[in-house]
């Protein structure tokens, strides 16, 4: 939490006209994992920016290390948002991304993740990667909050660097948890449905 991140989040919010809608869910500083559809580079910025100040302080976006360590600016940005960088390329046996996340959040931080594993333009949504399943298996107490990001990919689509200031909307849905005995496929499908259901609301 610093000046850069606050200013950037503010700019992104103004630019994208992002309106946060809390549907069956209220902002809270309890430990959560916000999982959302990924459509634009602005996603983590806008989700983070639409959280209240005290929630922001304990919320860290998860980002790809290979992308965010390149060049001089990206690592600086990653640091100012207190981002948790995950190595997509080299997944080591003794230090899996899930363990890294669990170590990093301790019993204080919440995470913002994009389980599709990459940016997908809005109408379509890819299958979820299994990260959130393993995460909630190890930490069943984490609240998993589905987030649907609407219209942000039109503000800044993939491959573009100049934004167009349209109106967008961030919807937070009711938290879900891993049910006892629920299989990985079932859980990931249910999580994906939870995000998709928010689209219509």
């Amino acid at each position: 939490m610093n000046l850069t991140s606050t200013l950037l989040a503010f700019a992104a919010k103004v630019l994208s006209g992002a309106q946060a809608r809390w549907i069956d869910c209220q902002p809270d500083t309890c430990q959560r994992v916000y999982f959302a559809n990924h459509t634009s580079h602005l996603d983590p910025l806008v989700i983070w920016g639409s959280l209240p100040y005290d929630v922001r302080e304990v919320t860290r976006p998860v980002a790809a290390k290979d992308y965010w360590s390149r060049g001089p600016i990206k690592p600086f940005l990653a640091r100012s948002f207190n981002a948790l960088l995950i190595d997509r390329k080299k997944i080591k046996v003794h230090q899996s991304p899930i363990e890294l996340m669990i170590n990093e959040i301790g019993n204080r931080f919440s995470l913002i993740v994009f389980p599709e594993g990459g940016r997908v333009p809005e109408p379509g949504m890819r299958e979820f990667k299994s990260g959130i399943y393993y995460l909630s298996k190890k930490r069943p107490d984490l609240e998993l909050v589905p987030v649907y990001i609407e219209n942000l990919n039109r503000v800044l689509p993939r491959g573009e660097f100049l934004p167009v200031p349209l109106l967008s909307c961030i919807k937070f849905g009711a938290p879900i948890w891993l049910e006892e005995g629920e299989s990985k496929v079932d859980f990931l499908t249910r999580a994906r449905e939870a995000v998709l259901n928010l689209k219509e609301l």
């Binding site: 006209g17 333009p121 219209n151 039109r154 689509p157 993939r158 573009e160 100049l162 934004p163 167009v164 200031p165 349209l166 109106l167």
Partner: peptide, 22 residues
């Protein structure tokens, strides 16, 4: 303009043109 374009479906190919418009 922002409201108008938001309710109008556009494709990614329109992005640069929209930037000029705005």
């Amino acid at each position: 303009l922002r409201e108008f374009i938001t309710i109008t479906p556009t494709r990614q190919g329109d992005h640069r043109a929209l930037f000029w418009v705005f």
